[in-house]
Simulated assay, not measured.
Amino acid sequence: MPKKIVQNLLRAALMECCSPARVNKIATHAQYVAAARAAEHDLNCFAAKDPASRGSVEDIAFGYSSYKAVLHYRLAHAILDMASLDRDPDREIESVAILVSARGKLLSGAEIHPRCHIGQRFVLDHGWGTVIGETSRIGDDCYILGGVVLGAAGISANPSGKRHPTLGHRAEVGAFTRIFGDVVIGDDVFISPHCVITEDIPSDSIVTLKSALQLTRKKKSQRPATTLLDLF
């Protein structure tokens, strides 16, 4: 069942972004087959890890916009690999990849650059506002929540080389965390929400942002009770 669902979603994306002849050509390519397999593994992993889904791959595939972001990334990345392998002097295939990537962004609110590298069994949960830059590298079995940014250290005129973070295997990144620059996050690292990271984090680390909450009780009102005479 997951295999058929993924195939249907991938083909629907392709049909909106290129001609039927191009769809058939892409859908028989080895890179496409590998992308479909990876997207199926992503889906099964999401169902296994997210208790809210209650294990339903159908609910995730059709109802979770964050999964749509990952599925479109898999397809766009595979199409770029096809363009590189088959040589694409007119950039026709590459243009399809850009359209597929844009479609994923519009459907999900997450921006995953099609040239970044993401390992197997990737889960993006509540992904709205997440940005994963072009030269980012993410290992296997990683779990990222919404609003996470894997970005460059600068704003404009960034270098064209490696400028985005690398995440090791089994990294977990909490919501609204920002990781900037060519930093390396090791294997099995847990990063709590709202952290801003600009330096390497060794494997088997837990990163937290300490904050203090202040609780002040309201004082009871000292106003005298209102009587009927006060109303006239």
Rank of each mutant, 00 (worst) to 15 (best):
M1K: 10
K3C: 05
K4V: 14
N8W: 03
L10G: 01
A13W: 00
L14K: 02
E16W: 07
E16C: 08
C17W: 10
C18D: 14
C18N: 13
A21L: 12
V23N: 06
N24T: 01
A27D: 08
T28K: 15
T28V: 08
H29N: 13
Q31L: 11
A34I: 02
A34F: 02
A35K: 05
A35W: 08
A38H: 00
F46A: 11
A47L: 02
A48Y: 08
A48H: 04
A48M: 13
A52E: 06
A52R: 00
S53I: 10
E58T: 05
D59P: 00
I60K: 08
Y64M: 09
S65L: 08
K68C: 09
L71R: 03
R74M: 11
R74L: 12
H77K: 10
H77Q: 14
A78M: 11
M82T: 13
M82P: 06
A83K: 02
L85D: 07
D86E: 15
R87E: 13
I93C: 03
V96E: 08
V96G: 00
L99Q: 03
V100A: 05
S101E: 01
A102V: 04
K105T: 06
L106Q: 13
L106W: 09
L107R: 12
G109W: 11
G109K: 11
A110P: 05
H113T: 10
P114H: 14
P114Q: 11
R115V: 04
R115F: 01
C116V: 05
Q120T: 11
D125N: 09
G127R: 01
V131G: 07
T135M: 07
R137T: 04
D141C: 02
D141M: 03
C142N: 06
L145K: 03
L145F: 12
G146N: 08
G147H: 00
V149P: 00
L150T: 04
L150H: 01
L150P: 02
G151P: 00
I155R: 04
S156E: 06
A157C: 05
A157G: 06
R163K: 08
T166P: 01
L167E: 09
L167D: 01
H169D: 15
R170M: 06
R170Q: 06
V173D: 02
A175R: 00
F176N: 13
R178N: 12
I179L: 09
I179Y: 06
D182W: 04
V184A: 05
V184S: 06
D188T: 02
V189M: 07
V189K: 06
F190R: 15
I191A: 07
I197V: 13
T198K: 07
P202Y: 14
S203N: 10
D204G: 04
S205W: 02
I206R: 14
T208K: 04
L209W: 09
K210Y: 07
A212G: 02
A212L: 07
A212N: 05
K219D: 13
S221M: 06
L228G: 00
D230F: 01
F232P: 00
